[in-house]
Design a protein around this nucleic acid. Structure first.
Lengths: 91, 91
DNA sequence: TTTGAATATTTGAATGTTTCGATATGTTTA
DNA sequence: TAAACATATCGAAACATTCAAATATTCAAA
């Protein structure tokens, strides 16, 4: 992971709505449907779509189309790589 | 660490200059002087001061005044807490 | 106690982000 | 095929961030 990608992931993580979304993945074994996410945030559908795009563009979520629904899967590998970069800051 | 603090740290980490600064701490055993940081970035002094303030406000760096110089120390504890929150996203 | 060096704050312009309403795209079902 | 549904994109308003120039503050040394 290069610095540009680290920066992009950090930016994706720097928003209250997106943090809330990510926290819900634990309860659902790492995958959530778009509709479930829309239900849990008090935002319009386009806003939620925008936030999800940021998380997908940062590779934190992997979208999987199922008919007219979209299932988002948490990308644990990217999360682990990001954590490795954080640990590398330490002396 | 609450969500607001997690968000603040993420935002502090979402800038190329600030990432560069943090990466230098490893080479210097976790502490750097303001002047060293100013030397390594191609930005004006006020801009660098502003970036350092964001890292300090996020508690990633602890400023220690030494006469008219400032020594910045990397806050490993906050980094560890942040990593714990990231791991908590995982299923 | 003035001078100079190191760092911080303020200001303003340019740019980026968040949000929403409207609309578009793609998919299932009647 | 038409209607209903789920999600994405567009366009614009409100707000936040970044950067540099100018200025202020703090401290050490002369």
């Amino acid at each position: 992971m290069d610095n540009r990608k680290f920066e992009k992931i950090s930016r994706a993580l720097s928003d209250a709505s997106r943090i809330t979304v990510l926290q819900q993945f634990r309860k659902k074994q790492g995958c959530l449907y778009c509709a479930e996410i829309t239900d849990m945030l008090d935002l319009t559908q386009p806003s939620i779509s925008h936030h999800l795009k940021q998380l997908v563009d940062a590779d934190l979520l992997i979208p999987e189309k199922e008919g007219r629904n979209v299932k988002y899967v948490l990308n644990q590998k990217v999360l682990d790589d990001y954590i490795d970069r954080l640990n590398a800051f330490k002396a």
